[in-house]
Amino acid sequence: MSSQTELNAQDALDAITRNLQAGDDVDNLLTQTDAASTDAGELADIIRRLHAVLTPAEPSRDFADELRADLLDDEQGMVLRVRQMPARVHVAAILALIAGCLLFIMRRLFGSDAPQEIQEEAVATPL
């Protein structure tokens, strides 16, 4: 098939599809198309069948409502957003958390004694 013939066939099939979807006459278009070289008749039949079969599907009301509730729940939304943050943000948050925990533990263990010990050591150390 030459490239021009192929382009014509593509245009014809596109026009047939658009007309079918718009509810317009398709037979008229087919008679104007060179059916022998483009197989337009056979392909138009497939287009008709696809048009009849490939129709929108409706989600169930329950599913739509449940998913909406999940998505619009503020906590869930926040969890999702946090979960999808870049890995470096997660790493930074974890490191900050560990550092905070260590600081807290050290203060609990040595918090009240540490300054006194340091002072005592300073006093005991000969100049």
């Binding site: 409706e58 989600p59 998913l67 909406r68 998505l71 939304g77």
Partner: peptide, 17 residues
């Protein structure tokens, strides 16, 4: 999130289909 809910309403059927 409510604005996202509106986008959800607009496109749920299309995406589901």
């Amino acid at each position: 999130n409510q604005a996202f809910g509106e986008l959800y309403s607009r496109y749920l059927k299309k995406i589901y289909s």
